[in-house]
Write a protein that binds this DNA or RNA. Structure first.
Lengths: 201, 201
DNA sequence: TTGACTTTCGCCTTTCCTTTGCGTAAAGTG
DNA sequence: CACTTTACGCAAAGGAAAGGCGAAAGTCAA
C-alpha cells in the first residue's frame, strides 16, 4: 500500500479511533475541529488522498460514510461468541445479540470455546480484573487448580478455582476478602475451563 | 456492512438494549418516545434505513417484529511482531527470528503496534504476570498513569507506569516490593504504551 | 369490530459533502 | 535555475442526504 504523509497518518489514526469509539464515522467538520482546520475543503482533500492511496472507502455525498479498509488482515484467529458477563456468585447474563469476538488461535483450546466478560474483582489475586475477557474451553471436568466456570445446584454460575478434596469440591475465589465454597461433588457441574485472558486498556 | 450515521447508531443501540431487557422489540411509538420524536413516520424511516444498511430485519406490518442481525464486524485479527521479552530493569531481549503473533483487532489501538512478553512480576499489582503478552502501541509520548515501555539513558528498557511531576518523570513499578524511579525528563525516552494484555494458561 | 401497530404521503429543516478559486511551501526535474 | 508536482491550508456557495412533522390509510390479532 502506498506510503502516507505524517498528516495523513494522523488523520487515519483519528478516523480509526473515532469509529472504534462511536460506532460511526466523524463528519468532515468533526475531523476539521480535531485538527484545528477551519476549511472543510482541506479535510475533504485529505480524505480524497487517503482514498486514492487505498486506506479508506467513501460513498458519494453520504453522511459519515467513511470506512476503513483493513490492512492486510492476515490472522490465524477464530471468531468466538461473546456470551455475556460472569461474576463470582451471579449467574451469567446472556447477551441477546450473539456478539462475536476475535481471539488468536493460540489462546484457544482444542474444543469448542466461548468468551465471557468478567464482572467484579473476585479473581484479582489471579491477575484477572473487572472487564477482562476470559476464553473458556467447553469441558465437563477439570484438574486441581484450574479456573472453572461452575454451575451450582442448577442456579448460580461462578468463576472460581477448582480443587477436589476427598469426595468434596472446593471452589476458591482468588480474592482474600472472599470465602471458599466447599460442597459435595454432585452439586457442582463444570461448564468450562478458563484457558486464556484478554484485556483492553 | 454499510456505515451508520450518528442517529442511526443511537437507535440501533436502543433496539439492542430494549430487546435484551424485554425479550421483544419496541413498538414505533416506544422508540419515538425514547428519542422525543413526535412523528412515527420519522421512526419508521429510521428503521427502514437500518434495514437497508443490513443491521435489522423486519416482518412486514407485524408488531414489534424488529430483529437484530448479528454484526460480524469488528472481528479481524492482525499479525503483529513479537519482538522479545521485557522486564523491569532489563533491556529488551530481541528475538532473532521475527516471530509474529495474532492479536484481535479491537485490542490494537492504532497501527504500528508490536508485542512483548513480560518477564518477572514487576507489574503484578496491575494484574500483569510473568509470561503475559503485552500489546504495545508505538508512541513517543504518554499520559499520566499509562503503562509505558521506557528507554533510560540509551541503555535500560523497562515496563513501568508513567507519571510526569514538575519537570521530572516518575517511573512506577506496580509491585509494592519495588522502588519508583525518578529522573529528569531528558533521560527517559518513551518507546510505546501498553494498550492490551493477553495470557495463555 | 376494535384497539394496537405499522405504512405511506407531502412538505419542511438541518446536517453534511462537494466544488470552485486562491494561496504557500517543499521536493523533484529538465 | 526556472518549471512542475504534491501536500497543506483558507473561504464560501450549492446541493444532496438525513432527520423531522402531521395526517390519513392500511393490517393484524383477539
Amino acid at each position: 500500500m502506498l506510503p502516507l504523509t505524517k498528516r495523513q497518518r494522523e488523520i487515519l489514526d483519528f478516523l480509526n479511533e473515532f469509529i472504534q469509539q462511536h460506532g460511526y464515522a466523524p463528519s468532515l467538520e468533526e475531523i476539521g475541529r480535531r485538527f484545528s482546520l477551519s476549511s472543510l475543503a482541506t479535510v475533504h482533500k485529505h480524505l480524497t488522498n487517503l482514498q486514492e492511496k487505498g486506506f479508506i472507502k467513501r460513498a458519494w455525498n453520504r453522511s459519515r460514510s467513511v470506512e476503513l479498509i483493513p490492512t492486510r488482515a492476515g490472522g490465524r484467529a477464530l471468531e468466538l461468541p461473546l456470551l455475556g458477563f460472569v461474576a463470582a456468585g451471579a449467574p451469567i447474563e446472556a447477551v441477546a445479540t450473539t456478539e462475536m469476538i476475535a481471539v488468536p488461535e493460540d489462546l484457544v483450546g482444542k474444543r469448542d470455546s466461548y468468551v465471557l466478560r468478567v464482572k467484579g474483582d473476585s479473581m484479582i489475586d489471579e491477575q484477572i480484573r473487572d472487564g477482562d475477557y476470559v476464553i473458556v474451553e467447553d469441558r465437563k471436568t477439570a484438574e486441581n487448580g484450574e479456573m472453572v466456570i461452575a454451575l451450582l445446584g442448577g442456579a448460580d454460575v461462578t468463576l472460581k478455582k477448582f480443587y477436589r478434596e476427598n469426595g468434596q469440591v472446593r471452589l476458591q475465589p482468588a480474592n482474600a476478602a472472599l470465602q471458599p465454597l466447599v460442597v459435595d461433588a454432585e452439586q457442582v457441574q463444570i461448564q468450562g475451563v478458563v484457558v486464556g485472558v484478554m484485556r483492553k486498556y
